[in-house]
């Protein structure tokens, strides 16, 4: 890692290098240094999942990840799963089926759902509920979110 207080990793498919003291949390690096504000800060203690990003493809809490430890790894944020034009199948389903209300938890859910569908293209309802159970939504009661993920699973990518 080197002790030069920097971190190098792949962010949304591009190499990035940033100044980064050891105590910097990945969420802070993303939001405050790199200004990728799509990843949200909800509780800062790992309960709400608003800060979910993919690390090497797996949904992970960026609020409980030291930024220096993503050295040489691949990080994907909501900005990285959003197409240049239009929306991904998951995103489209979230909009059309009312799976986003206040929207603050939504980027985290989109990350979790995107990873779930990559791993299980046709998850059962209980697999979906299990997969999203680290992402907290206070608006929807989760039902529309489950429906949206089911719908996205059924549609072409």
């Amino acid at each position: 890692m080197g002790s030069d207080d920097r971190v190098s990793f792949t962010l949304n498919d591009r190499p990035v290098q940033a100044a980064c003291p050891p105590e910097r949390i990945l969420l802070d690096l993303l939001r405050e240094e790199l200004r990728l504000t799509g990843t949200k800060r909800g509780c800062d203690l790992g309960t709400c999942g608003c800060c979910t990003v993919l690390i090497d493809g797996r949904p992970t809490l960026s609020c409980l990840t030291l930024a220096r430890l993503v050295e040489a790894r691949s990080v994907t944020t909501i900005e990285g799963v959003s197409p240049a034009q239009g929306l991904s199948a998951v995103q489209r389903a979230f909009v059309e089926l009312g799976a986003t209300q206040c929207g603050f938890c939504t980027p985290g859910f989109v990350m979790t759902a995107t990873a779930l569908l990559r791993e299980h293209p046709h998850p059962s309802r209980s697999e979906i509920e299990q997969a999203i159970s680290g992402n907290l939504c206070r608006c929807t009661g989760y039902l529309a979110i489950v429906r949206a993920i089911e719908s996205a699973a059924g549609s072409a990518p």
Binding site: T37, V90, Q91, F94, E96, G103, T106
Partner: peptide, 15 residues
């Protein structure tokens, strides 16, 4: 669907 929905699902809505 919410008019601002596309901004919310892409992390582009500004809080």
């Amino acid at each position: 669907p919410y008019v601002e929905g596309p901004l919310k699902v892409t992390g582009r809505a500004e809080y």
